[in-house]
């Protein structure tokens, strides 16, 4: 077996997640409290609002070798700060275009809404992204 093949066999996707404090972070708490099991590949960074998520954070994470990035917030209309999530949604459209334009599979990034009462929804989102990222394989910029 070649070194690369060994590495691939041992490879586990690393996913950076940005969760808003009021909905999705609490939703992830609920998933835990409800003992809902989901893939352990995600590392959550708590932000007050998805509106706080600078597109640079997403690009930086990919640039530094994350295999996938999740942004999870309150449902549109339910933002704790009334409309921060809508700002994120607007940025996301541009961000996705930029990511695709750079030749990165859009399967590696995900924007989702999961409320504080939707532990299952949060877990399902993580599961789906992890599976997609696993299928896409390890990520590293071609030019490095």
């Amino acid at each position: 077996m070649t070194t690369a093949a060994v590495e691939l066999k041992d490879w586990e996707p690393v996913i950076v997640a940005f969760c808003c404090n009021w909905c999705s972070y609490a939703g992830a708490d609920l998933a835990g409290t409800s003992r809902i099991q989901y893939p352990p590949n995600v590392r959550i960074i708590r932000v007050n609002c998805t509106g706080r998520v600078d597109p640079d954070f997403v690009l930086d994470a990919l640039d530094q070798g994350a295999d996938g990035v999740l942004v999870s917030g309150c449902h549109p209309g339910d933002c704790h700060y009334t409309s921060g999530n809508l700002k994120m949604r607007a940025r996301w459209a541009l961000l996705e275009t930029a990511i695709e334009g750079a030749g990165i599979s859009p399967d590696r990034v995900r924007l989702q809404w999961a409320s504080a009462s939707e532990g299952q929804r949060f877990a399902d989102g993580v599961k789906e992204l992890t599976e997609k990222v696993r299928k896409a394989g390890p990520f590293r910029r071609k030019w490095t």
Partner: peptide, 15 residues
Amino acid sequence: IAALLSSAFVHGGGE
């Protein structure tokens, strides 16, 4: 982000 990704995680591969 840096603390997570600068650790032993990054493997080869490529898009």
